[in-house]
Computed example of a mutant assay.
Amino acid sequence: MLFGLAVALMLMPLLPARPQLRAVQDGVPLADPAAGSKLSVQDRIAGWALRVLPEPLTMRLSAADLDIVGITRVEHTWKKVFAALLMGVGLLVMSVAAQLVLSVPLWFGLIFAVGLAAVGWLLPDAEVVSRAKQAREEFGRSVAVFVELLAAERRRDAPPAVALENAAAVSDSWAFRRIRQELLRARYNKVQPWAALETLSMQLKVPELGDAARIIALSGDKGASVYEPLRALGKGLRIRMLNEDAAREARASDTMSNIVTGVAVMFVVIILTPMLLTLLG
């Protein structure tokens, strides 16, 4: 019965379904009838999971974390479904084999299968959170360079909008490409570029970019001289990054010291154990 239910649940998203407007509100991709395109099996399964499962299960991860690592909610949900099915069904098959060969009770394996499926469901969230943290650190370093370049552009009296575009065009890293895309979108949407960058900083939860955007906004909106504030911001970002690197190295040093101390204690215990056993005997 359990295997039949699992197969039915896996085949259900593949069956023809009536269109639902709620799918658009939930951000589930829909096929384009004009282009004749069809959703892939992964997208249909992930869309079904987003529509049916409770939000605490599918919306635990923030949109900012998904955005900064460059994956959509549907792709992430498919990874969660695949990991849960792979680990849960795999252990369930092993439990059935253990029951047939070793007479192990099936309920014992079912409990572990459910727990392992829950772990598989949560693992992609932990991976994205870790990747998002590293991406924000890398983006912050790129913003520090961007601020220095922006200060140099303002030093030579470049207009604020031109200074932003010239500073963003220096590097081809993913952070600078994202800044260039936002500046290009702002130009076509007739939005001030510093306002677009501040929106991007809130969208990605990168406050360093928001600080630079607010400083350059003083020059664009009020004509203020922002060279010194930009240099001060760049210096502050560099000092903060150096402090974070030093703290990270100190933690790594402490961890290594603890490992070496633990190995030394174990070595002493190994040497003293035969002597103590001899004395006690």
Score class of each variant (00 low, 15 high):
Ala8Leu: 13
Pro13Leu: 09
Leu14Phe: 06
Gln20Ile: 02
Val28Tyr: 01
Leu30Asn: 01
Ala31Pro: 00
Ala31Val: 01
Asp32Ser: 10
Ala34Pro: 01
Ala35Ser: 14
Ala35Glu: 15
Lys38Trp: 05
Lys38Val: 11
Val41Arg: 03
Val41Asn: 02
Ala46Glu: 03
Ala46Pro: 03
Leu50Trp: 10
Leu50His: 03
Leu53Phe: 13
Glu55Gln: 14
Leu57Thr: 09
Leu61Ile: 15
Ser62Glu: 15
Asp67Ile: 04
Asp67Cys: 04
Asp67Ala: 15
Val69Phe: 12
Arg73Tyr: 04
Val74Cys: 07
Glu75Met: 11
Val81Thr: 06
Leu85Phe: 11
Leu86Ala: 14
Leu91Thr: 12
Leu91Met: 14
Leu91Pro: 09
Leu92Tyr: 08
Val93Asp: 02
Ser95Val: 01
Val96Leu: 08
Val96Asn: 05
Leu100His: 06
Leu100Ala: 12
Val104Lys: 00
Val104Met: 02
Ala113Glu: 14
Gly115Ser: 13
Ala118Lys: 10
Ala118Leu: 14
Ala118Cys: 13
Gly120Ser: 11
Leu122Ala: 14
Ala126Asp: 15
Glu127Pro: 02
Val128Tyr: 12
Gln134Phe: 11
Phe139Asp: 00
Ser142His: 06
Ala144Thr: 10
Val145Gln: 10
Val147Pro: 00
Leu149Cys: 09
Leu150Ile: 04
Leu150Pro: 01
Arg156Cys: 00
Asp157Thr: 02
Ala158Met: 09
Ala158Gln: 09
Ala163Gly: 04
Ala167Met: 04
Ala167Phe: 01
Ala168Val: 07
Ala169Thr: 10
Phe176Arg: 00
Ile179Ala: 07
Ile179Met: 13
Glu182Gly: 12
Ala186Leu: 05
Ala186Tyr: 06
Asn189Tyr: 08
Lys190Gly: 12
Pro193Ala: 04
Pro193Tyr: 03
Leu197His: 03
Leu197Met: 03
Leu204Cys: 00
Lys205Met: 10
Glu208Gln: 13
Glu208Cys: 06
Asp211Met: 08
Asp211Phe: 05
Ala213Ile: 07
Ile215Gly: 04
Ile216Thr: 11
Asp221Trp: 08
Lys222Ser: 11
Glu228Phe: 02
Glu228Trp: 02
Pro229Lys: 07
Leu230Tyr: 00
Leu233Phe: 01
Gly236His: 02
Gly236Ala: 07
Arg240Phe: 08
Met241Ile: 08
Asn243Thr: 08
Ala247Phe: 05
Ser257Lys: 15
Ile259Trp: 15
Met266Tyr: 10
Val269His: 03
Ile271Gln: 05
Thr273Met: 11
Pro274Glu: 07
Met275Leu: 13
Met275Lys: 06
Thr278Pro: 03
Leu280Phe: 10
